[in-house]
Amino acid sequence: MAFGKYNGWKGFTYRGGGPMLVFLLHRITAVGIILFVGLHIMASFSIQQGVWGDFGVFINTIYESFWFQIFVVFCVLFHTLNGLRITILDFWPRLLKYQREAIWLEWAIFVPIYALTIFIMIQRGLAG
């Protein structure tokens, strides 16, 4: 039996591949950023103009927690890097041949930056 031909996990493994995964993540992170920035601006408006009751304070307490900020950093960083990859490949279509390599490169850039960022955030968050 060839290597990888059969294993018990086949029914559970994700078979969309790297491009499908980043496509989905691009959409999910987009909605994440829109919710964050949209609510953020509405909260600023609410507090600044003194309207809509406690809405602004309520949103503020959510986005000041570092757990939420860890999610936001994931969204912004991933969406930026993936968007940059899409833009580069679209403007120079001959590079599309290397799409999968580009996705690996993207993760190679994303993981260290994100790891360092959440390390600092958690360190400061736990320090209070």
């Binding site: 953020h40 600023s44 507090i47 600044q48 400061r124």
Partner: peptide, 21 residues
């Protein structure tokens, strides 16, 4: 500090910065 600078980069609004502690 670093967090303030990152916020300032995308939302350069003194009001907003005061609003969020």
């Amino acid at each position: 500090d670093l967090g303030t600078l990152m916020r300032w980069t995308f939302f350069p609004n003194p009001n907003h910065v005061i609003n969020s502690d």
